[in-house]
Design a protein around this nucleic acid. Structure first.
Lengths: 231, 231
DNA sequence: ATTTGCAAAAATATCGATAAAAAACTTGCA
DNA sequence: TGCAAGTTTTTTATCGATATTTTTGCAAAT
């Protein structure tokens, strides 16, 4: 039976719901970098009490989406070019590692999921609408499929955080357009992974992440220039 | 002026204090793996209300020291050989990376701190008392000094979590003895770092971490054997 | 014009009480 | 005895209220 609309996802508690909603709003730029997060205001906005909100914010602080200073409350984590570069470099290191482990340990199920999720991603990339939200989902599924064979829980955990941090930059920078030439990179990624070619797969993933980061960075730089011109 | 005893450290709020105390108690085995963490019980034990406790537990869940299941409360994160191995492998990857960056970017201050912290560690290792708590602190300072030149915030963050997770295993497994031959590994580490020899420094750190993990794992295995014999 | 001091306002952190859920414990019945 | 349904107890999650701290606003003084 379908659950109530307030708990359609895996969120059993108000705290979880608040966590997921805040997280999503930060990633999608609804809550702007550095913005103050006043409990009283969020209370009315999200329709939950102070306790679950503070719990959610504490968790978000632990994975770097908000900053917390004692007696001064919370704010959305700032964004900067250095931070993007930092995230990018570490994401490359971890995703390479996870990919290598996957190539070593992945079985039939792993291969199937790569083929399937690549196909779904391809469909979105070539479709007329090119819905960015849909693309984000499929892109995430594809990357998850690639590293699904990785057995390290900690690697998965850290990678997940970095993926979402990266996603925040992508979303804010390129909220509308999907670069067309990402597709062939995904294809190379699929082929090298299925061929169990660690070296080339790692090169492909590094190149792919660097490329998207570069695009993001360029848009980010242009935006910050515009802001300075206004000021 | 000296602060009140309840806020001698950097903890400005009750939530922070509870977080640090719980964290420390988990790392030092005061709170056992898998142990249920009942709010009402902790309330009396730690002398704070439910709200700061829940915030602290939420944060601890985010960095993997406790597990949280909706409507079922919190418990101390379990320990296992697989988890130790997982932590060990990833810690090696990250500490190598951080060390390389340090060797590249570290300046005079970085070198000085390595020499200084190594000296302090050496003193404890060769002293008659061989106080494990003192050794833990000095060991931490030395490893921190080695990677102090690393400019990546995210790498530092993740490394910090893994270091403390590793420390939990160390503490529970070897709460009393300090293996004597760790000293020469530290020396090799200091020398190769100061010589700016990335390759050898990385080998040294890998070997060092693997060695301590092996010792820990052996003790862990013996303990779990004893438990099974009793049962 | 800038700073200083203080009072008012706002926001944070925390507590105590309560509703909701899960676990433990009966009790009735085959 | 075994076990299913209902009932009590325990525990979790959440709200509303309050004490404490920070920020703001404003007037007097340098």
């Amino acid at each position: 039976m379908a659950k109530t609309s307030t708990e359609q996802n895996g969120a059993k508690t108000l705290s979880d719901q608040a966590y997921l909603k805040l997280r999503s709003d930060i990633i999608h730029g609804v809550l702007q970098p550095d913005e103050k997060l006043r409990i009283e205001h969020l209370r009315t906005e999200y329709g939950v009490g102070a306790s679950p909100l503070r719990e959610a914010l504490s968790r978000l602080a632990a994975d770097g989406f908000v900053t917390a200073e004692g007696q001064r409350g919370f704010r959305v984590a700032p964004m900067s070019e250095e931070d993007l570069e930092d995230i990018t470099r570490l994401r490359i290191l971890l995703e390479k590692q996870a990919l290598c482990q996957s190539i070593e340990h992945g079985g039939d199920e792993w291969e199937s999921q790569i083929v399937a999720s690549f196909y779904q991603l391809e469909k979105v990339e070539e479709s007329a609408e090119r819905d960015p939200a849909e693309w984000e989902m499929r892109n995430h599924d594809f990357h998850e499929a690639l590293i699904a064979g990785c057995t390290s829980k900690w690697l998965r955990r850290f990678y997940g955080i970095l993926y979402d941090q990266h996603k925040r930059y992508r979303n804010i920078a390129l909220s509308t357009e999907i670069p067309r030439d990402l597709h062939q990179e995904h294809e190379e990624l699929r082929n090298t992974a299925l061929a169990r070619d660690k070296k080339r797969a790692c090169d492909a993933i590094e190149h792919h992440i660097l490329r998207t980061a570069e695009i993001t960075q360029r848009v980010l730089r242009e935006e910050s220039l515009q802001k300075k011109e206004i000021a």
